[in-house]
Design a protein around this nucleic acid. Structure first.
Lengths: 228, 228
DNA sequence: TAAAGCCAGATTTTCGAAAATATTGCATCA
DNA sequence: TGATGCAATATTTTCGAAAATCTGGCTTTA
């Protein structure tokens, strides 16, 4: 691992995590202290993150964390529905037994962590929270992994990163709770996929993301109202 | 303009142009000479290009130009059909008079350069060639510019860059000629779009890109056969 | 002969200083 | 007072040297 790669991954995780607030300037001197590396790896990492839209740069004014908004969130959610809906259809058409097996496995792994966190009434620690996010990401990735298009997978990953920032923020603020049974939605998507019903599966996936979008919008508007 | 930005744009243009062959390693010392800048702006530019998939990097082994293949080309072409087809539908639904005016203007500008180059039997100079590519890109960008989704536009741009590398290579080798009337295809897309017929327009766009894909495949296979 | 170890040269990666540029606070002037 | 210019400071950007790592060829060894 090069320092450049390491600091890229750390910065990426920290931005998604909300350690740096949206729109906050990222001062090189401070980052240098924080991550214990020189300018070069930092600037390389920031240039890469720029391509993922996690940071934006202004000429001679350095980098800042990109901002969040209801409009951007909906664009990301709707694009995700569009891209992953198609990728899921293709996966259902092309996926073999290994794909099915990996899909079932990733759903199961997600169920386990969901159940464990559901039982515990205590505060959820960061590690568990990270694992939940990871398992969730892996389940959705498994659904579309057999689509056969590197570009669709690339787009889906970018959109997942973007929406992950909103999800993390929403679950952190925790003032609102979903009333829905997310686990049941996942299960329904899985079952439609396994019986190779592309229309049903992509429809359920659409509903799933759309419901998430509505939840995120409520949280975002709540935060804005609270702040003013 | 920072040096980093300048060298990024130059490198990008030169890779698309085929100045560096696919899969060729990009040695920093050589690039330093060639572009007259130090390591830092070069590495920053290369890190950004990595995000666009124009270069790939291997740990401690620097950067190389990403490679081209028939499979990758078809993935890019099909993804383009998918993404731009939807973006065109949305543009047709949302576009206002200004959008229509700009669209007609960009088609006209494309027609002019096509006619000029069609008349001249002489060798096409680099500037004219670049202008043709630019006008072509701008026409296709104008079609989808009113789609209202920053993400779809972002994806379309990435895919255009990717396919541009293949187009440039194909038109350079020039051993094969299209038998089709590309200008007529553009005109048909424009007319369907202006009469707000989304099904017809996106169907024609699909056919247009698919025909281009078939042309590119012939050229690619011809090159491989020629090389062996 | 083939495999492993090692050295020299080539190359990438990282650092901190220097140059270029932006920002802030203060003084000056109309 | 309010705008403008200037100096001091903060910050980004760039450079070239140094450190780390890889590559290819040579030698040694079994």
């Amino acid at each position: 691992m090069t320092l450049s790669n390491t600091v890229y991954e750390k910065l990426r995780a920290d931005i998604i995590d909300g350690l740096f607030a949206p729109h906050q300037p990222l001062r090189l001197e401070q980052l240098k202290q924080q991550y214990g590396v020189g300018f070069s790896p930092l600037r390389e990492a920031l240039n890469r993150l720029q391509g993922e839209r996690l940071v934006v740069s202004a000429l001679q004014r350095g980098f800042r964390v990109s901002s969040l908004s209801v409009e951007e969130m909906w664009d990301a959610v709707n694009s995700r529905i569009f891209v992953e809906g198609e990728a899921l259809r293709r996966s259902i058409g092309l996926g073999d037994d290994d794909w099915e097996a990996a899909l079932v496995a990733s759903f199961h792994a997600l169920s386990i962590i969901v159940k464990r966190l559901g039982q515990a009434d205590r505060e959820i620690d960061k590690d568990s929270f990270d694992e939940l996010e990871r398992r969730h990401r892996e389940f959705h990735a498994a659904l579309i992994s057999a689509c056969g298009s590197a570009w669709l997978l690339d787009f889906a990953e970018k959109l997942n990163t973007e929406t992950e920032r909103y999800r993390v923020m929403a679950l952190r603020s925790a003032t609102l709770r979903h009333e829905r049974d997310v686990e049941a939605e996942h299960k329904a998507i899985l079952e439609a996929t396994l019986r190779r019903d592309a229309d049903a599966a992509s429809g359920l996936l659409r509903d799933h993301y759309h419901a998430t979008g509505q939840f995120l919008e409520r949280v975002l508007r709540d935060r804005v109202a609270r702040a003013s």
